[in-house]
Amino acid sequence: MKIYYKHTLMLLFLPLLWIGCYDDLPIDEDGLLITERAECYVSRFELLGVDYNTVRAGGKDAVIDTLACTIDIEVKWATDLKNLYPQFTLAQDCKLDPKITGITDFSDLANPKKYTVISGNRNVKKTYTVNIKIQER
């Protein structure tokens, strides 16, 4: 029976070998790894309706100016701006503030929504403004 105990203990300690090899990068308040990357930009932007289909007019991509930090997007006529899902594609290791948690209200066109991109090393922050234009009838 002692042999069983020994084998069991060995099996329990085996995973520690892998854990011991783990490179321990720092973690931020969201539980995300803080890396050494300083890249900080939005590479793609999408707006989806409540049916999860794009609301971009004519299939035109959003225009992203990484210097001016603006995102210009034209949406279909009669798009319900109160109920949209924004989707950002960011440079590697970046994160977004505020986080996208669900349906977002973009209906206040006079005060466009702003999102801050934070680099992987958490040292660079760029605030993008999302400008929405509605397709004319």
Binding site: V50, A78, D80, N83, D105
Partner: peptide, 11 residues
């Protein structure tokens, strides 16, 4: 189903 703040049309 969440219908709060939904519009009164669907195209």
């Amino acid at each position: 189903i969440d219908l709060a703040n939904m519009p009164n049309y669907a195209l």
